[in-house]
Amino acid sequence: MRTEPMRPRPRRAQNAAATYRTGSWAWLLHRITGLLILVYLYFHLIVLSSAIWAGGMTSFNRTVASLTTPPFIFADLALFALIFYHALNGIRLIFLDLGWWVDRQQTVFWGMMTIAALLWISTAIVMLPLAFR
């Protein structure tokens, strides 16, 4: 018998990622996207309210105009991706809670992801020209 030390820490010897499969990745991503959208929500509210507080109409127009410049259009597209993932997987979760297609959850997951991807691509097709005008 040979022996080898465990690195880096013994507790970490078991690779937790190995347990992850479709349903658990779906859950982890759902959680991450949900929390990111929540963070965005607070940014959104703070940016809009400080624009108004800073000087009403004119500063609101200035802020919103800067928010529709190309960098922000790309950021919006990233946000759309988060929302579409969370929303479509959320629909799958509600189906599961209703007891619908529980035996085919992986198929439903990929079906939902296809819809999310199509939604995002059509959004990108509409919005990207705005970034390049």
């Binding site: 347990t19 992850y20 349903g23 658990s24 599961l96 529980v102 959850q105």
Partner: peptide, 18 residues
């Protein structure tokens, strides 16, 4: 949180999540 890990790993094939 309906991750289905239990259902997929149960050696007796019990539909646990369901």
């Amino acid at each position: 949180r309906t991750t289905f890990n239990c259902t997929l790993s149960c050696p007796k094939g019990i539909p646990i999540t369901k």
